[in-house]
Design a protein around this nucleic acid. Structure first.
Lengths: 231, 231
DNA sequence: CGGGAGCTTGAGGAGGATCAAATCATGTGG
DNA sequence: CCACATGATTTGATCCTCCTCAAGCTCCCG
């Protein structure tokens, strides 16, 4: 939570019309003419791990499309502790609530270095009629992911949860998974940092995962699925 | 999960324009002319506890507005167990995914006898331009609730979770709360039925809640908040 | 080289899971 | 109306997992 102030690198203004992942993102349904109507700048940003997109309670003026990397959404509870309530990767949208709400409802922090498009809320509001379907899809997508966190990552033993987490992580080149810090693993699974560390180590010893570089793992999916389903 | 087939009572066709909770629901922004354009019947139903609105995987042809009562949304995990991923009460919408998806993504079951409006998907699709803002609000509302379940009800000890559940339950007449079966409490909090039962009993003995009738409780909110924040 | 942060490991104890049985509530058929 | 079956709830006893507190460890950076 006490993240340092990390600056984003400026890539330049995004050219949405020629976006490589355009069919995944918010502007999927738009035509050439629509893009001409966008007069506000859409920034193309690169963000290192630890960078904060926005904080809970900030004025919600932008939506963020994730082009690459991994973003966590955090919320704090009354007793000062905090939980991760969603993980966003390629194609997902962070800050959807900007469209209907004054302020952000969670804190968004980069877990794996990310490239994102920072879209002014007004652009989305102006294009709303055209974006309607895509916005609904993005809400749905986001809800599916959050419910997956709730269902798969907070049920059963720590062993089961960690296994399911590995199976749910986005896969990088070569069928490898990039894990994040143990504190974040704990905040996602609803266990302590120590239990997260111990359990990852235990699964590593069991041979279901193999650490090829610090926090980079090759997965034995069959074995992980066996563990995930309770032995 | 093995709910009996319970029939809904037919109230009749809904008259949305004069709905008592219209400003809460999907049709909040509509005018008289818009209602005339609705040619498909919107059913007004009463449903007893245990009734199923729809099952996970069913063809999603209807949205349901909750006018009264409490609905749970369930999902099953790979190992056959199941979790409650959301609780819906007055003003909330069940089955929002019908708009963008072919099938329902969860099973919706009545926890406290409910009155709901069953709205054909086509009605919503046809009115989409007018409903856009309201649909987004409903998605946002639903997401806030699911994230609340994840954050508040799956963190900390069973004592804390049960206390937070009581504080989150809708309040009936006379500041009283109606609890549901222990198995459902367990499926919501991520604990076993036995632990749910034991913990409710323990909080009852502590005086933070008082059972005035079977499963109807008067709350000592200060005391519950003390417990919820970890003693 | 000396911090500092994150990760790992250890020992101990508390809390929840599991298995089992008793109690209570409800509805059914005799 | 009562006897009985069924299912939910409660309670008990035991075991195991995970939390807590604490100490070492590794890696990185000044």
């Amino acid at each position: 939570m006490r993240e340092p102030e990390i600056q984003a690198a400026w890539h330049g203004l995004a050219s949405c019309e020629s976006c490589a992942i355009r069919d995944l993102v918010l502007f999927a349904g738009l035509e050439s003419a629509d893009f001409n109507g966008i007069h506000l700048p859409i920034q193309d940003l690169w963000l290192p791990p630890g960078a904060t997109l926005y904080q809970h309670g900030d004025k919600a003026d932008y939506l963020y499309t994730v082009r690459e990397g991994l973003i966590k959404l955090e919320q704090t509870l009354s007793d000062g502790s905090w939980r991760i309530v969603n993980l966003l990767s390629q194609g997902h949208v962070s800050g959807l609530e900007a469209v209907t709400s004054e302020c952000y409802g969670h804190t968004a922090v980069v877990l794996q270095s990310a490239t994102v498009c920072k879209i002014p809320k007004e652009v989305v509001v102006r294009l709303a009629p055209k974006l309607h379907g895509q916005l609904m899809k993005k809400w749905h997508e986001s809800m599916v992911k959050t419910q997956e966190c709730l269902r798969e990552l907070t049920s059963g033993s720590a062993r089961q949860r960690v296994s399911r987490l590995f199976l749910a992580l986005p896969v990088s080149l070569g069928a490898r998974c990039h894990l994040f810090g143990r504190e974040d693993v704990g905040a996602l699974l609803g266990v302590t940092t120590e239990t997260a560390s111990r359990t990852v180590a235990e699964i590593k010893r069991s041979g279901a995962i193999h650490e090829v570089a610090p926090n980079v793992f090759e997965l034995n999916r069959d074995e992980l699925e066996r563990i995930a389903s309770g032995k």
